[in-house]
């Protein structure tokens, strides 16, 4: 499960994780549940149908399949699978009953969405050959993740017994097991970090299996602590800057030196903010890993770079 505040790149990280898990010939399913075709955009393909389709090939022949889970379609599938209601399902849809069930019946929508993930995890297990080696879910944002995963509690207000309840229990069995990990994607900025820390506390309180905090778009610094301090204080050695620029074949005018000093000061401020936010994350006691900011922006090549970075840092579940 990959969650994160809006704008932190959780879909990108989920896709990179799926690619990483598929390395060496494995088969991975990447699910999205927010109906915005984010996976198709990342893999640069046409909008995906409600059908598991191949979207990428990983290093060593692995394959990533993707499925945009749609609550309505999942509901119809569920009715057909468990109750043999097929054509009736469409009549129900015309009445607005499916829309109703998947939008306002408390928790039902989430049971359907998480239920699809749990079904994919279990598929083929009984015959000893699971369909997928791993399932990655691009989950709702951090602010809603606990509610989303805690389907049991959410559904309790609605149904104390009955088929929905047993479905919720079965889904919960998978979510709470050691096979599941909830990773939280964040940026090293105040708001996303706060939301991540709140998410960690909520997930812990609900007894849900927390995974790794994944810092995205981290700015790497080659400058040492002394140089950063000098950059912040605007006391970088001017004579050395003049000499260096001249050696680089760039005219060392006062304006150029001033501008580079300003840029270095911006950079130092950014690094200081990153460091203080990282300390806050570390205090949570969760494992942390960092993905670099890609100056060229996010594209398909960048996705493979991030997947490589995840592999190097050993995130394989």
């Amino acid at each position: 499960m990959v969650s994160g505040k809006g704008g932190t790149g959780k879909t990108t990280v989920a896709a990179a994780l799926a690619l990483n898990l598929a390395r060496g010939g494995r088969k991975v399913l990447l699910l999205e549940v927010e109906g915005r075709q984010g996976i198709a955009q990342i893999f640069d393909t046409a909008p995906l149908p409600y059908q598991e389709s191949k979207v990428a090939v990983a290093d060593g022949g692995g394959v990533v399949y993707a499925l945009p889970v749609d609550a309505e379609a999942a509901m119809l599938e569920y009715l057909e699978m468990f109750y043999g209601i097929k054509r009736g399902g469409y009549a129900l849809r015309r009445l607005g009953a499916i829309d109703f069930a998947t939008t306002i019946a408390p928790g039902l929508r989430d049971v359907l969405l998480t239920g699809k993930a749990s079904e994919a995890v279990k598929r083929g297990e009984k015959v000893g050959r699971p369909d997928y080696d791993a399932v990655v879910l691009d989950a709702p944002p951090t602010g809603r993740i606990t509610k989303f995963l805690n389907v049991n509690t959410e559904i309790a207000g609605l149904a104390k017994v009955g088929p929905i309840r047993s479905q919720a229990d079965s889904v919960m069995g998978v979510i709470r097991s050691a096979r599941t990990a909830v990773h939280l994607v964040t940026l090293l900025e105040e708001m996303p970090v706060q939301e991540t820390l709140d998410g960690v506390a909520e997930l812990r309180a609900a007894g849900l299996p927390l995974g790794t905090i994944i810092i995205n778009q981290s700015r790497h610094s080659e400058l040492g602590p002394d140089e950063l301090a000098a950059a912040a204080a605007r006391t970088l050695p001017e004579a050395e800057m003049t000499a260096g620029l001249t050696a680089a074949g760039i005219r060392a005018t006062a304006a150029t030196i001033r501008a580079l000093e300003d840029e270095a000061a911006d950079h130092a401020a950014r690094v200081a903010l990153q460091d203080s936010e990282r300390v806050r994350l570390e205090a949570s006691g969760q494992p942390i890993l960092e993905l670099p900011l890609l100056p060229g922006g996010m594209d398909l090549a960048g996705l493979y770079t991030l997947s490589e970075s995840l592999a190097e840092q050993g995130l394989s579940a």
């Binding site: 050395e240 800057m241 260096g244 050696a247 270095a264």
Partner: peptide
């Protein structure tokens, strides 16, 4: 050489 300037560039 001039590692600081190289990094700034």
């Amino acid at each position: 050489e001039h590692v600081l300037v190289a990094e700034l560039l």
